[in-house]
Design a protein around this nucleic acid. Structure first.
Lengths: 334, 334
DNA sequence: CGTGAGTCGTTCAACGTTGAACGAGAGGAC
DNA sequence: GTCCTCTCGTTCAACGTTGAACGACTCACG
């Protein structure tokens, strides 16, 4: 038994298909009495609109696409969860893609998700450069997340990475840290986030009159736990002996803390640690992890607003952040 | 400038739209020479098929829906990541929904995602009962994940929860544990998973000739870190003094370990801990967490196979698991 | 009483695609 | 020469929906 169409309902009530369409969408003029009869019929046959036909005719799909590097990373999972929740509240469906941080996948996605037409694309790029977006010939609205890609002509939403990184570093300074290591510099690939957070780190130290010790800036290949663990091993084996660590995201921080723990280095007694992203996991690690907490709900709401904004509002849109104070930075000074 | 259609390409080459369609889809008969000319034109105008029209005509959307309770939970995030990856490999797009574990949301999703027609729905139910699915009048293929809902007429894919829970408990027994607590029993709501894992726990103890101490079975409200932390506080305050803990998922285990750690109870020296799901986080916790590791890649591949299977293959399909041995169960006996 | 405005519903065409049915020509078999 | 088959491409209609345009009818106003 095929799915009932507008015509089926219309025949049942004895009106035109268009009138049923009007009832369904609340458009046009229909008397209350007729509207009610139609609504009864709609329920009786269990009518559900055909999304394809609706989209073909109206041009709108009611779907937006989200593309993140890896959904398995807690930050992106929490971001996706937040976005899906916000979208569901607006009767929008979210379609999820993974880019693995590969530039060509990111470009392909910015050009439209294969054959699937969506009303907008929210892309959290990792490797994409401004040039990749110049040649874009797809007209689907695009909003970028979390990165400032050159002089992009697309709207993008991000936390002020430099200010947040500076605040995190200042928090370490405020509890008495003086030799602060930074984990997360990226030498390969144009990872804007890493650059901006590094800038914030430098700014805080300079402002405090502390010379930057370049050996305390540790590069990583990626932003995973394993990379943080590796960086911490470098810290230990090189005998750098920092009294504070600012990791550019929570996974790096957690990986580092794991290494420190197995090496019997105490956190925060021997070295304080602060991360970035404030993922839920940090509230249950041992010790609990201090972190920069971006206002994710605001971020996703802004992203959707911008995506649907008419006319488009290009430029950078910044959302707020707070510093979550937890056990990993309850320093000797406190 | 509107998106180019088949007709635009056809006019350019001087053939019919249908022929271009044939080239795009590899259907029908086209000479190599003409095919090449069409393909050149396709690239020149940057043709991309209109998904809505294609779906309207063919009935297929190339999309499947995944519905999980919460995407922010690492297990579901990793599951979603795995599914999206597998689907992308098959040229399928995944659309993600969150149910918050609410029965009526789950039912609504099983009835089709709002207006959006998808080729299939993969649902990981929490509160749904068999009865909820009986009255289903949507014909979209449905595959259930991770739960055995009564005598369901739908295919479902799951790890053998009872066998896996039994294996986890036996692992604790094998390292010398004799007073093993279980965290994760659910008194409210028909959480099949909790029941099955509890059954496995009981079976392992009985088989080992150890009487089940009901006070060691701790109920939880949910499967989050906070619930595990709370259960561990109960263990401590009630003076239960177990020498092993089997938590019904990793989050419960991590929450419990956090509580134990702050109470200076050593893991695994004082009490060994094993979880379930083998989320990545467990490899970096302090100590690292032993866990039941379901074969997720196999799970999602099977789910998609079943979803697209013609004819449908109802019944339970089981995937394998292994026990990941880590520091949290390096017991005194070893 | 004519004109305009508001109300209620209809018909028509089109969105872009593809299955079905139908030529038209070339070649081979009888 | 006729019939059949195979190749290559066309035309036609339809998927279910909704914007635009259009009647018909009622009411108020000058």
């Amino acid at each position: 038994m095929a799915r009932p169409t507008l015509k089926d309902v219309a025949d049942r009530v004895g009106v035109s298909a268009k009138t049923v369409s009007n009832v369904v969408n609340g458009t046009g003029w229909v008397t209350d009495e007729l509207r009610e009869r139609v609504q009864v019929a709609l329920l009786e046959v269990g009518y559900r609109p055909n999304a394809a036909a609706r989209q073909l005719r109206s041009g709108r799909s009611g779907m937006i696409a989200l593309a993140v590097p890896e959904l398995s990373q807690p930050y992106f999972a929490e971001l996706a969860a937040s976005l899906v929740r916000e979208a569901q509240g607006r009767m929008i469906t979210v379609l999820v893609n993974q880019t693995d941080g590969l530039a060509d996948v990111e470009r392909k996605i910015s050009e439209g998700i294969g054959a699937t037409a969506v009303d907008g694309i929210i892309l959290s790029p990792l490797a994409l450069s401004a040039g990749d977006l110049e040649g874009r010939r797809d007209s689907t609205p695009l909003v970028l997340l979390g990165e400032h890609i050159g002089t992009s002509t697309f709207p993008h939403v991000t936390v002020d990475n430099t200010a947040a990184a500076k605040a995190a570093t200042q928090h370490l300074l405020s509890i008495g840290c003086r030799r602060i290591a930074a984990i997360g510099a990226q030498e390969h690939g144009p990872n804007e986030t890493a650059l901006l957070r590094l800038a914030g780190y430098r700014a805080a130290l300079e402002e405090a009159g502390i010379p930057v010790d370049e050996s305390l800036i540790l590069p990583v290949d990626g932003f995973h736990r394993a990379d943080g663990a590796r960086a911490a091993r470098t810290i230990l084996s090189a005998g750098l002996e920092p009294d504070g660590i600012f990791a550019f995201n929570d996974l790096l921080a957690l990986g580092a803390m794991h290494t420190l723990s197995t090496a019997n280095v105490r956190v925060p007694d021997d070295v304080a640690v602060i991360g970035f992203d404030d993922i839920e996991e940090g509230q249950y690690s041992t010790p609990t992890l201090s972190s920069v907490s971006p206002h994710t709900a605001e971020l996703v709401a802004t992203a959707i607003d911008l995506l649907l904004a008419q006319p488009p509002a290009p430029g950078m849109h910044t959302v707020g952040f707070t510093i979550a104070h937890r056990a990993s930075t309850k320093g000797p000074a406190q």
